[in-house]
Structure formats: C-alpha cells, structure tokens
Design a binder for these strands. Structure first.
Lengths: 237, 237, 237, 237
DNA sequence: TATGAATGAGTCTTCATTCAT
DNA sequence: CATGAATGAAGACTCATTCAT
C-alpha cells in the first residue's frame, strides 16, 4: 500500500550484519560509467536473444555479473532502461539514413541497393539489431514499436514514401510497387535473414549463409526480381 | 516483467473470487470438444496479439470465458497446449504447399508468384499466422521455432532449395539469388506486412494497405524488381 | 515490463514437482468465505496494532496461517483489501449514529452523552476501531482518511455541525464551543484512551483503566467540565 | 507496502545516477552542524507528514538536498536518527510543563486551562508535534511511544496524576474524572485537531478552524462542559 | 567531510500447477 | 465435466546499510 512512500515492518527487521559478500565483484572497482555500459550491452544481447518482455532484469544482472538491484541503481525502472536503449543505441542507427536518398536522388535503383547494403552492414555491426527489429519493432504490440513512434515519429517514413512516389511518377521506379511497403520490404529482405541466422551468437556453429550472401541475395532480388535477369532482356531484345 | 501500469486484463476479472463473479456459465454444458476448440482459438488470438510467452493461461481462460483451471483440464500443461496448437493449426497450413512446385514445375516465376499469393491468402484466412510467424517462428529463441523443427523437420525446406537450385542451373531463375533465402524472402515480403498491419484485429480502423496491395506489391517486386521494368527498357530502346 | 500482460522467462523455468507441502493447511478444507473472513480479521488486528501502511500482506497471511499469495487470491491487491475493509467493517459502524441526534433532538447534553457512550461501546466491541481511527483516519495522510472521504463523503459531518449550531443558537449548548470541533472532541475523549490502552490485545496485562472508567470520565468531562461540578452550582445558589 | 501508483518521491529523483544529476551542492561546504540540523528538520517535517515508519532515509536526504549516504554519515542508523530526534526535539518540549502545576497549585481549573493553552502554543510553534504525537506517540506500536517511555519514564505522568487526585480530594476538581485520563484528554482536545488541520503545511488553503478557535474550544469545554453554562442556570432560576 | 557504488533482504504481485470436491 | 482453493516460484522494485575513495 503506502500511498506516497513505501517501506513496512522495517522496524521489525533488524539490520543484520550480512558479512558474507556473495555475488558480483564484491569490490575492486569497475567505475560507474563502465558498469552502466556493461549493463546496456548485456541487456541488448539478452533482449535480442529472448525478446524484451521475456528478459528479466535479474537475467540482465546475471549476464553482467552484478545484482539485480544494480540494474535499478543505474536505470531505476525497466521502462527507463528501455528508454535508454532506444535513445543511446537505436536512435543513432537511423543517422545518415536520409543521406542515401539525397545522394542517389536521381537513381532510385542504386539508392535502394545502397539502402539494402546499409541494412546488412548495420545488422552485421550491431548483431542485436535484426532480432530486435523483428520481434519488438515490427511485431504488433512490440515494446519498441510504440516507443520508437513516440520518440521518433513517422517523419522519416513519410519522407521515404514521398521520395518513392516521386520516383514512380517519374518512371524511374516500378509503378506497381506500394510506396508504403517498399521500405519495409527492403528491411525484411535484409534483416529477417540476419535475425534468423544465429551468426551473431558467439557459440553458434558455422552458419551456411553469411552476411555476404544475404546482401547479394537482397540486391539481386530487388534489382532484377526472381526472373533469369539480363538474359531475359537479351532474349527479348 | 510487468511495469506498474495496471494490467488491463487484471482489471477485467482476476483469478480470485474477488469482485466479479467470473464469466462463462458455471454449468449447463457446452460440450467438451467445443470448449476445447474455443480455448484453442482464444489462445491463437492472444498469442498472435501478445506473443506466446507473454500470454498467461489465465488470459486465455478469460478470453474463452472459462476458469484457468479449465485450460489445464484440457491441455494439462502450457507446453502441451502449444504442442496442440502446432499439430492442429500450424502443421496443416503447410499442406498443399509442395503441390505448387509440382504444378509450376517448368515456370519458376509463376511458381513463386503463386507461392506469394498463397502466403497472403493464408495470412488473410488465418489472421493469427503472420504475427506468430514473425514473432515466434522466425525469431531466434522463438517458442515455435524449435518445436516446429522438432516436429516437422527441414525436409520441406530442403526440397524447396533443391527445386530452386535446379531452376537456377537451368537458367530459369535469377542465378544471383541464394536458394536457401528465397523462400524466406517470399514469406517476408508477404507475412511481414500482414503481421504489421492490424487488419487482423477486428476493432482497428481501416488500414491504408490492404491484403490486395500487399499481394500486388510482393508479386511486382519478385517478378520485376524495383526498376521501371522491361517495358521501360523497351520504351528506352 | 510487459505492457499489457505479464510473465517472463516462464519457458525457462520448468514446472517443478514441488512435492513437499509446507505451510498452511495443505488441505482439509476451510471453505472459501470462512477463509476470507479469517483474512479480514487478521488484517484488522494487524492494521490496528501496526498501522495499515506498516503491515505487509505477508504478515497478514502469516497471522491467518496461509500463504501471501492467498491474500491476493481473495482480494487481488492491497488496495482492494483496504476497500473491502472499509466497506464491510468501517462503513457499517456509522450506522444508526444519526438516529441519536434525532432521538435527543431537544436535549443536546444527553445527545452528546449518548454519543460518547456509543463511541466507547463501539471501541469495546470492535477493538480494532480506536487504533485505526487514531492512526489512519484522523492522521493527515492516513490511508483511511482519504478513502473514507471518497466513499462516504462529509454529509454526516455537515449534518452534525448544523445540529450543533442550531442548539447553540437556541441557547441549549455552550456557545463558546466550535461546532466543527465538537464531534472530534467527543471521539478524542473516548477513542483516544481506548486506542492507547492495550486492553484489546489478548496478551496484555490487566489495564488500569477499563472501558467503564473511560466512558464515565468522558461523560463527566463533557457534562460538567473539569470544575468541581454541581457543588459549585449549589454554592452559587 | 507500496501500491502500484507511482511514488511521487521516486519521480523526483531516485538514488541511482539515472537521469537527474541529484540535488544539493556536490561540494562547497555547508558546515557540519548546519547540515545536521537541516537533516533533523527535514526528518521531522517528513515524519510528521507521512509517519516515521513510512519515511525512508532517502526521502529525508532528498528533502534536505543531500545524498542518502549523508544521513548515515551523520546518524549512523535509522534508529539512532530517531533517538536523536527524541533527545533533541521531543524531550525539551516537556520542559517547564511541571511549573504550571506549581504556579497554579491552588487553582486546578486555571492550571488545566493554562495547560491546554500551552499545548496549543506548542503545536503552533512546532507543527511537527501534533501529528507525531497522534501517530507515533499515542498509537500503540507507535515508534516513539516505546522509546519515549524508555528514555523518559512515567515520572511526569505519575506526578500529574497525584496532583489531580489531590485536587479531587480537596473538592476543587470534578471528582468523577479519572486522574490518569485527564492529562490525555487535555492533549486530545488540543493536539488532535491541530494534527488534523493541515495548517502546519505551508501550501494548504486557508483552514476553517485556526489555532485560536482550537484553544478557545478546548478551554470552553473543559471549564464549562457542553451545557449552556451556569449563566443559563441562573437565568432559569 | 562526503559520496558513488553495491548489495541483501523484503514487499507486492502474477502465474502455472495441483488437488479435492 | 468443472471449479474453487491453495501454493511455490519468480519478477520488479525499494530500502537501509556498508565501503572504498
């Protein structure tokens, strides 16, 4: 209960000596900021592996080698931890994404190709990204989905849609595509296989399909479709 | 986890005898098998909405209008409920999928097109499928992923890979594609947007992108790629 | 975390046989409503002894010989338990209180005397009442204070004030008294000593001042004041 | 306990390094004794507002603008802080109280009147006193109750009882009163309304009943009782 | 003098599961 | 066939306290 402030029966429970230091690094200093980073990374790793909702703070603490109370010490609440993750790790990922549209303003195919390659590179560099994107960003009810929208808005998406629609009107892009789906398709073609392959886990067996293959496959699909490609053109000619 | 925000479901009527007398008719028979079906469907709906791990048996019972103990009565354990779901709902979905490869043996493009359309149709008919596929089948650590593999194996996939590779050798399919990724790409292009659009929820406002658009977009992408298409080329010529 | 619905890592933790029945009455039936009553009474006893905020649900459960989870089974949350207490135990206490004003409409002194005696009787019959009144009703920030106001409102108080003010105008009541304080004074003169004396605890040593003395003292004070009383009048005469 | 409602204090700035850099000046010296006094006063204010058991050391530190560790630095443990409060703030309040009995040795009515006025004055000067008296001194199980008894004993009370009893034997005081209750009655008539009125809180809206009214009411009640007073009687004659 | 870091214990709450009826 | 009662385990969060710096 405790309308404004907690703690009960406190008088009853004597302080207790609690002499035996048990877990974690009892002392020997790690440095505050360092510990915080360690926790953030542990959280990202576990969130990617198990999903956000299904990862307990205790699990994160264990992964980082500290007590669960430490997680609260640094982030106060689970929600705030997630907010930190979004602000410090997710939001920065978007950086420079818009530039691609600007640079390749007149060549949509190369723009989308660059975008696909960028996604793959991101997924390789930040292995937690693809799984989290799949599970907690695009899934309805995904934890990050709502928060990202709150924090970041739809601006970026809208811009992309506009650019795509323009290209279509100019006859530079397959007019049968749905502007609002293309972006997602690109991410799906790249991040989905990255999320599935366990390559980002240290202990996994050698994966059959590597980052290279994923990038090549995605680019091939978006540039040429599944058909036999240039050959077909030649034949047509 | 469980933030301090009051759980919506809890408010609706908790397990205890507390206030609301609880739903369902206490007696008056519904018929065993019927009840079982009702529970399975409630489970699918909730699993799709919230993810499997984040749906409690109590929530399922509430959704179906019975007591939590009933769920145990019919399925014994949580794990067994999931197994039932896989056997009775997921596995059947695969049925007839192989036929497409046979029917379109000599025309891979139309085969893949048919496949894409099939996925969209499946997603439309079984609205729980796309979200569950995204969250719990392809996501690493997804609950269904491991079990599906145990129960179903990779046979199907292997067969598809073989067919695709053959088409590539025969020059009928873009050779730059990765056989083991193509199938997943197809599903991604169709199920991903289906999972994201809330169209499967009855109470959602009219979505901007409907099933039609998703199918058309996917087909356009796989058949022609993002480029302006052969027609444009011809015109250019 | 868990936006709408809880439970995490559940998959990881196997059910476990939990063979050893430990506390409580493992079985042997107590009957639902009976248990509920038992819990309410345990709660009242502890709340009276330690205050509401400082009594943990665990303590209540222990007092009633059940697991803490049982408390939630019957009351869902702490707040709801308190609401039940208010509705089922506190509110009924007020019953018939207004009648006193009606019965003694023309004799304020006997009305207030009756009121004082009524308070003492209430405190004797429901030993949890005086301590709870002192700690959680009149104390600012007291848990019951706010809730009682929400549920019951000030109606009763207002009525009493009006009656008192009328008596004063009619010259039947000491005009120097403050109408809005008189009611509280009466309760203070009766419930305060009842709250302090531990007589309501079974294990206390024989108290020096019993219920009788408290009632007599309060009545004497309000009817005659501290002065030597009738004697003075006689002398005056 | 601690209901799900977000603790107001927590929002203000939790212990962790989380977001808000924390209050106070990190360095720049305030002077030890000064700091100690500030803490004592913060503690008194919060204890009065929320009760002793329900005020965390962290809340006190925050109120005083220092780190929670500082509280320990100055007082070692929670219990010792309370002891300091008793010794330095509560015990001194008693000072000079006995003199009243001596001064008005032969006029009990004016002695008790003076006493009542003294209580009101104390409550006005030390606004933390009435709430703490109600909640933590008179309430059974109140934190201060036991400690006060240990540190101060019943001496004072006994003396008062003796004086009162003597007056009664001498026919100067209403013989129907209970000596051991009179003192408490006096405090109840004065401190109780003082504790209830939020006047001691700076931000409260103008209270209807001020210190003046409380004093007048208490004096009127103890000197004349609730009846219309001797005057009325005389008139009747 | 002062504080950041860290922890163990405790609180409320939820949930899967069991069992007697 | 169905359910109410009950429980153990776990999770998030708070807090008093310690300690090295």
């Amino acid at each position: 209960m405790k309308a404004p402030e907690p703690s009960q029966d406190r008088a009853a429970g004597a302080p207790g000596p609690a002499p035996g230091r048990r877990p974690g690094r009892p002392s020997g200093g790690v440095g505050g900021a360092e510990q915080r980073t360690r926790l953030i990374e542990a959280a990202l790793a576990l969130f990617a592996r198990q999903g956000i909702l299904d990862t307990s703070l205790g699990a994160i603490a264990r992964e980082a080698g500290v007590t669960p109370a430490m997680v609260h010490y640094y982030f106060n609440t689970r929600d705030q931890l997630i907010d930190v993750l979004i602000d410090e790790r997710f939001v920065p990922l978007r950086e420079g994404l818009g530039d691609i549209f600007v640079e390749h303003r007149d060549d949509p195919v190369s723009a989308l190709t660059a975008l696909a390659q960028r996604f793959v590179a991101m997924g390789q560099r930040y292995p937690w990204f693809p799984p989290l994107w799949v599970r907690d960003v695009i899934s309805e009810g995904g934890v990050l989905r709502q928060r990202m929208l709150e924090r970041v808005g739809r601006e970026h998406q809208e811009k992309a849609h506009t650019a795509i629609a323009r290209w279509q009107r100019e006859g530079r892009l397959n007019a049968a595509l749905e502007p609002s789906l293309l972006f997602q398709s690109l991410m799906g073609l790249t991040l989905l296989p990255l999320a599935t392959s366990q390559m980002w886990r240290g202990d996994a067996e050698k994966p059959r399909v590597g980052v290279e293959e994923i990038a090549r496959h995605a680019v091939a699909l978006i540039t040429q479709g599944v058909g036999p490609g240039p050959v077909a053109h030649i034949e047509k000619d």
